[in-house]
Computed example of a mutant assay.
Amino acid sequence: MFAAAWTASPQLPSEGFTPNWSREGFWRQSLRQVVRLTAGGERVRVRFSNAYGNSPVRVAGGSVAVGGSGVRLTFGGGSAEGEMPARGELVSDAVQLAVEAGESVVVTLYFDTATGPATFHAQAFTTSYRGGGCLLDEGGNGFTEASESWYFLSAVETDSGRTDGIVLFGDSITDGFGSTPGADRRWSDALASRTGRAVLNAGIGGNLLLNDSAWYGERGVGRFGRDVLRPAGVDTVVVLLGLNDIGFSETDAQPTYKPAPVVSAGEVVAAYRELIRQAGELTVIGATLLPFGGSDHWGERAAKVSYEVNEWVRCSGEFDGVVDLNRVMADPGDPDRLHPAYDFGDQLHPDDEGYGVMADAVARCL
């Protein structure tokens, strides 16, 4: 049985937080991407998403490698070429490639025709590479451009047979903003190391529970089925989402936050109930929102709404379990603020140490 060992949530092509290639796409170019798996196996298959593409995307060739040893990908029962349907996905055939949990795999694609705008994941916090021509069998020398996003790549699966995978469903905190780029220090990475289970990251920076965003992805209640229910081998989801719904309307500093309707605690709670309903038989763990006093999301109304939401998470009994990240991550001298030792520097996102503390807290409640 194949189960997901790594995922990234697809997003609409956009300018994103940093320069990227999503709007221009690829033509007569090779794309090399590196991802860290959280489950091992003897065989691997790869999923590619064209969820936001209006026309098919031809893949002229692909490969997957680990530790210097690689194999060519095939599609549809043995073809060296494949096609991602418009608004659909392409799944490779299973290939023989032994991998271990914690190892990184390298996925390379060659596009000989224009892809058009590319479905992507904006904030990878690891480097992807692009070069001219077909570089499937080449080392790194031909890859002359770099980007910190993932393109088309949405999942890597292994034949682990595991059915105890965990999905972390959230925003930039789950995505790993504030962690050291290239070091795999997100709290999803830390939780996988602490539990020995596959941990799948379904975070999107800036994501909202209740509203779609051209920059920050489909609303949480809309993408939950794709990003949480579809991956194989999952039995638990941890929900940490809603802070942007509460805080975006507090600031005019980021035009990408707009539109940012003012939301009530009741609206956020209704969205949580909808996620619980959609989850069905999955174990759903609710996480309280982290302290964010002093950040650009903070204000009198946001403080009140976040307090009410967190009290509901703690006391309602509607989640299968609760992890109180708000209390775990708070400054002992000012519980409205993130602990200084865990603060990346914007009073909103944790640093590497903070993400490790979050992983410890979740591991204790599993």
Rank of each mutant, 00 (worst) to 15 (best):
G133V: 09
L200A: 00
F26L: 04
P19E: 04
D159F: 06
R72I: 01
S154E: 13
L240G: 03
W150P: 10
Y216F: 13
E250P: 09
L168Q: 06
A198L: 10
D189R: 04
F2T: 01
S295I: 08
D320F: 08
P340A: 01
N207A: 04
R219D: 13
N201V: 12
G178M: 05
V106C: 14
D112L: 08
R47E: 12
G140A: 12
V362F: 14
Q123P: 00
V309C: 14
G61W: 06
G25E: 06
A253F: 15
G299K: 00
E15C: 15
K304M: 03
R43I: 10
S264V: 04
F17S: 14
S172Q: 15
E24M: 09
R58M: 08
G233M: 12
S160R: 06
P332K: 02
L12T: 15
V59N: 11
E89N: 14
I285T: 03
A4E: 03
Y272M: 05
A192E: 01
A279L: 01
W298S: 09
V228K: 15
S9W: 02
Y52C: 02
P340Q: 02
Y355A: 10
D227R: 03
V323K: 09
V34Q: 10
F48P: 12
V262H: 09
G286W: 07
F224K: 11
E353F: 00
V107P: 12
F152Q: 00
E218T: 13
A302R: 05
R226C: 14
P117C: 15
A253N: 13
V34I: 07
A98D: 04
L275S: 04
S295W: 03
G333Y: 05
A183Y: 10
D336W: 08
R185H: 06
V328I: 04
G70E: 11
T283N: 11
E281R: 03
A155V: 06
L240S: 05
G280C: 01
Q33L: 04
P255F: 02
V199I: 02
L348Q: 03
G317S: 03
T236E: 04
E81S: 13
F248S: 01
Q96R: 14
D343W: 09
T115M: 06
L241S: 08
V237M: 09
L289Y: 10
S213T: 00
Q29P: 03
V107S: 11
F26T: 01
Y129K: 09
R223N: 12
N141K: 03
Q11I: 05
A114N: 08
A302T: 05
S79H: 07
G77C: 15
V46T: 06
V238N: 01
E81I: 07
L208R: 14
P261Q: 02
S306P: 00
S63F: 05
F26W: 01
V35P: 09
E308C: 06
M84S: 15
S79W: 08
A198I: 08
G178C: 01
G88I: 10
A232C: 07
G182Y: 02
T163D: 14
G76Q: 01
Y257L: 05
A65W: 12
L210G: 05
G182C: 07
T180I: 08
A98G: 00
D93V: 04
L168M: 02
L241Q: 13
S63T: 13
L12S: 15
W215T: 07
K258P: 06
L90D: 05
G82E: 12
D235Y: 10
L282M: 04
V284C: 04
